[in-house]
Design a binder for these strands. Structure first.
Length: 283
DNA sequence: ATCCCCACCTGGCCGC
DNA sequence: TGCGGCCAGGTGGGGA
């Protein structure tokens, strides 16, 4: 489900309610997530105070007392829900509720139907954990810029769609935002990345535009609370609205929205994933 | 090293 | 109503 803007939306919702609370109990469904929860997960997390909630790429980082960090990835269908105190009193685990954090005043539930999500707990500084160590720059940070992209793309034959989904090049983008960024930059998803870079290694204008469109989409989507497809919502249960601004994603067979373009949006499969694009506008 | 592809799951939708 | 097939926001790990 969640790409960077959705995870950021979840992060903000959790941050406002769980910081400074103590984890009193943890209930487990017993079903394995993508990886089994580490044996010591519960014993390490229990009786710790939540000090911070942050995000790196699509990972949520929950900082605990004792120099511990819970690293949580939502996979395709993971979600957090902060229950009100009355909901918490009456709560009985629902289907796909896999972890319930009892914070005394209320409960926080992690639900994940497909169980592609996972959680670990680490004593390391989280950026050194192997899950995070090879991530590329955050799209909204200064370290994400056209020079960095040009350097990764110089001489490479891979299609731009695949490269943008590669979390070591830029982190946090997923299938929706890559399709949308390429459409808004008028770049064909099959274009080889080396074609966006001059032989001397400097970025072409189209690559600079792409970088700017990625920034813009991420910023706009966060402002709208992310995209709600299926049942994505924030930790407070609020829906996002960015899906109303999709121009190509999920629009196969519909007319391209560009003025003076009468082409239909096409779908193709790249690396096993659907790409939506306009063959006429995206060169 | 680099890149591609599979596997991991459940559920919703569509056509028969 | 039921069933099979297809599709879905991700990514670690194995193999080419």
């Amino acid at each position: 489900m969640p790409e960077l803007p959705e995870v950021e939306t979840v992060k903000r919702g959790l941050e406002g309610s769980i910081v400074n609370k103590k984890i009193e109990k943890i209930y487990l469904s017993g079903l394995s997530l993508r990886f089994p929860l580490p044996d010591n997960f519960t014993s390490m997390a229990i009786n710790k105070k939540i000090l911070s909630v942050s995000r790196r790429a699509k990972y949520l980082l929950i900082g605990l007392s004792g120099n511990l960090t819970i690293i949580s990835h939502l996979g395709m269908s993971g979600s957090y829900r902060v229950l009100s105190s009355s909901e918490s009193k009456n709560y009985t685990p629902a289907k796909h509720d896999h972890l319930i954090f009892d914070l005394s005043d209320f409960k926080v539930v992690y639900n994940d139907p497909r169980r592609f999500g996972y959680m670990v707990i680490t004593t390391k500084s989280p950026e050194d954990h192997k899950l995070l160590a090879s991530l590329g720059p955050e799209p909204m940070s200064n370290s994400f810029n056209e020079e960095v992209l040009a350097k990764s793309f110089l001489g490479k034959d891979r299609p731009i769609k695949n490269a943008l989904l590669d979390q070591t090049i830029v982190s946090g983008l997923g299938n929706i935002y890559v399709c949308e960024a390429l459409f808004r930059s008028k770049i064909n998803p099959k274009k080889k990345v080396k074609r966006l870079v001059y032989a001397n290694g400097s970025p072409k204008d189209s690559l600079i535009l792409l970088k700017n469109k990625i920034n813009q989409i991420i910023r706009d989507s966060i402002a709208l609370g992310g995209s709600s497809l299926k049942d994505f919502s924030s930790a407070e249960g609020k829906m996002g609205y960015f899906q109303n601004t999709f121009r190509v994603y999920g629009r196969e067979g519909e007319n391209c929205i560009s003025e003076n373009c009468n082409e239909k949006i096409k779908r193709l499969i790249q690396s096993g994933r659907s790409t939506f694009y306009c063959p006429k506008c995206q060169k």
